[in-house]
């Protein structure tokens, strides 16, 4: 029995056609790269180091360890398993973040810290945490208005921070995303401190810098003549503070605090020239 006419007409009007599958690029890169790739937040136009302290830290650590790798720019933190840049795609395709990167590098390129004594190792842990918490707080997060912070000073925010993030996305996404990022940072900060006061945070940073300056003394690196993870951490913050916060219009208090310690400034310059300038 044939299909009744009106229905057939309708079916003819809506033909079922099977199109070839839409092309989706393979998960990139298709096969494990032969060389590890470090994904970092994009640097500014003329610089080689990332604009993000966390990324500079790992760039420096990889450079210190002589770990062969290439860097690739990436401005989407969600690409990383931890939700934070940077991440390393190892030669065998594993994706590593944070401590896993350090372990991988120690595995492949040798442990920078194997020569340290127990006392030096415990100092390494303590000073690394100190720099990571206090300087990080002072730099990225907590600079309330008059203090010219990356998120709280209107001048720095409008000149550096927002352009840095806003240039990555089209309007209006850029406005929304950079503001949601800011509120996220605020929330995280408030979970660490009950009250955000500029003087306290700057004081903490100043004391940390003084302690680091004492530890460094006139040595080449923090623990003698060879670099360690602490050097990577301290260099990343010093470098960002000295380069990014150098504004022609006015002096940023945090930068001023760093400039007071001559050996730290020399140290940052020396490390940059040795490992990044070439």
């Amino acid at each position: 029995m044939g299909i009744p006419n009106p229905l057939k007409k309708l079916q003819d009007a809506l033909p079922l056609v099977r199109y070839p599958a839409v092309y989706t690029p393979p998960i990139w890169p298709a096969e494990p790269a032969n060389i590890p790739i470090l994904f970092i937040f994009p640097p500014s136009k003329q610089a080689i180091t990332s604009l993000d302290a966390e990324c500079v830290k790992y760039q420096a650590f990889l450079a210190f360890s002589n770990y062969e790798h290439v860097t690739r720019e990436c401005h989407e933190p969600e690409m990383s398993p931890s939700g934070q840049l940077p991440f390393l795609m190892a030669a065998d395709g594993r994706i590593l973040t944070g401590r896993q990167i350090i372990e991988e590098v120690k595995d492949k390129a040798g442990d920078l810290e194997s020569r340290l004594t127990d006392a030096e190792r415990s100092n390494l842990t303590a000073f690394t945490q100190l720099a990571e918490t206090k300087l990080d707080f002072a730099l990225n997060y907590t600079f309330p208005p008059q203090l010219f912070t990356m998120w709280y000073d209107s001048r720095i925010r409008d000149r550096i921070t927002f352009p840095m993030y806003e240039s990555l996305y089209p309007w209006p996404l850029n406005k929304i995303l950079s503001r949601s990022l800011r509120s996220e940072k605020t929330e995280w900060m408030l979970s660490r401190r009950a009250v955000l006061k500029k003087d306290e945070i700057l004081d903490d940073a100043k004391r940390t810098l003084a302690a680091l300056s004492t530890l460094l003394g006139s040595q080449l690196f923090f623990f003698g003549s060879k670099a360690s993870f602490l050097d990577a951490v301290v260099f990343s913050y010093l470098h960002i503070i000295l380069s990014l916060l150098a504004l022609p219009s006015h002096e940023v208090p945090l930068r001023e605090a760093v400039m007071k310690h001559d050996n730290l400034v020399q140290y940052a310059r020396r490390v940059f020239n040795t490992f990044f300038a070439a």
């Binding site: 303590a126 940390t208 302690a211 004492t214």
Partner: peptide
């Protein structure tokens, strides 16, 4: 130096 260490460990 010890004062610097004291600060660092306190932070830790």
């Amino acid at each position: 130096t010890e004062a610097a260490e004291c600060l660092a460990f306190t932070g830790l």
